[in-house]
Nucleic acid binder design. Structure first.
Lengths: 254, 254
DNA sequence: CCAACCGATGCGCATTTTGCTGACCAGCCT
DNA sequence: AGGCTGGTCAGCAAAATGCGCATCGGTTGG
């Protein structure tokens, strides 16, 4: 964990440094806030600890500037000796991730440092991607090669289903069951929805993204790791490849 | 801001509830931790406040389970009356986002709540900013392009909800639950509220800030940051499918 | 090798679902 | 009393959906 420790004004942060180092946490102590900004801009830290005397406007500005550094994700923790409650609230609202009053227990300070660092990592947006198609589950949006593509609700859910089950055949009955809670329409509607979905994708310049598996369903194949070119590698039809004449066995998802 | 308040064991959290409500923060108080888990699984909250007596293993388990609910990492704040430093550190390392000792100043508690919530959704200050819109969670004020815009209480909470959930679709049912503690009105009221909120923003010269996602809800999208997308450039494809509608409808980005 | 068959595809229309907007009325707080 | 707020309703507009029908294409059996 890389920690940048600095202070504003004439605050000696030596005691804080001693407290942290005594808990086996290495800090980089830059006494001048100006230098600290340069430092944080050049190198990357997990957290910035700011030793303050009061909640001055200069301090609030500094918090804002430190947070804005490096893709605005570095957490800032403020330590101070004495501070009014309203000032603490002010600093928190201004962007400080935590405010700790000194003297503080070393264990707590370290745990708070870890907590602040842990929080800022891990922004995962649920995006399914297969080839040029990206589907944002949270934002309910689809892009093909970066271009946004409009989808109706059912089309979206259908594409979501196919992407979740990529590389395996999805049967029409499965789609019907997944798309409708109850009151399922005729199975033919699935064909129509597939057709409409294909038309949407074709409108974005993407053809044959959803493949038809005859008498089984549909499939979206992941094309990454292109050791073999799937377009050319599709044999017309291996005549004797299917020993079972009527039932097609294979990777069929329920 | 949607807050779930619960406690472990026989801890009455009524004083915490009173403290928060006295600061105009609405909480949902579920006395039983078991029920609270079910509740958090069903609805989505911005933060879970957990009233503890001590750092028991049950408490640590509960924190882990609450955090893991529904994929979305809901922040958990622990409030307690007295606790050893090592126990506080334990809870923080177990996944708690903040630990506050009671009695605490209401201002600080609220500011810490705001800080914990905004961190987990990607904001850096308690002033939520998306495009020209700035919403001050602490000051309960809204500005559009620097100009203050008056909002009613419901409109403010609705906008706050949309901003906290930026880039993800908010369903109408979620809004209904977030806007009303009990006695929910009909779902159609959400349409009207959105309409009124849009009219406020339009009065400040801002159009199509809140986009409709058909059959799903509403969304506020943040224009993507200057991060360039070096996607393989596809030749411009002929498209006549999207004739640029007057009103943004459906799952279309931007 | 050919033809019949059956599933897949394409298209258009009528219907249903969903969203938008203005209006009305009932509380509530000045 | 009067304005602000908030819930409900009705009418309208738009999007989405289901289905019928025609056609295409592969599979299969002779």
């Amino acid at each position: 964990m890389r920690i940048l420790l600095t202070s504003l004004g004439a605050m000696p942060a030596n005691d804080v440094e001693a407290l942290l180092t005594s808990h086996a946490i290495a800090v980089e102590h830059i006494p001048s806030a100006e230098h600290a900004q340069l430092y944080a801009r050049t190198y990357s830290f997990d957290i910035i600890v700011l030793h303050l005397a009061s909640a001055s406007t200069a301090a609030i500005d500094l918090i804002g500037r430190l947070r804005a550094i490096e893709g605005r994700s570095t957490p800032v923790m403020v330590v101070a000796r004495q501070m009014a409650a309203s000032d603490q609230a002010l600093l928190l609202d201004a962007g400080a991730d935590d405010v700790v009053m000194l003297p503080s227990d070393g264990k707590i300070l370290c745990a708070r440092l870890r907590a602040a660092v842990r929080r800022t990592v891990g922004f995962t947006r649920s995006v399914l991607q297969v080839g040029p198609v990206e589907l944002d589950m949270a934002g309910r949006s689809v892009t093909v090669a970066g271009q946004p593509v409009h989808m109706s609700a059912t089309e979206f859910r259908l594409l979501e289903l196919l992407l979740l089950r990529k590389n395996s055949v999805v049967r029409k009955e499965t789609m019907l069951h997944a798309l409708y809670d109850n009151d399922e329409p005729e199975i033919k509607s699935v064909d129509v929805m597939i057709h409409r979905l294909r038309k949407r994708l074709a409108g974005a310049g993407l053809d044959s993204f959803i493949a038809t598996v005859w008498a089984a369903g549909y499939i979206v194949r992941q094309a990454d790791e292109p050791a073999v070119t799937p377009t050319a590698a599709l044999p017309p039809h291996p005549r004797g490849a299917t020993p079972a004449p009527r039932r097609i066995a294979g990777a069929v998802t329920q």
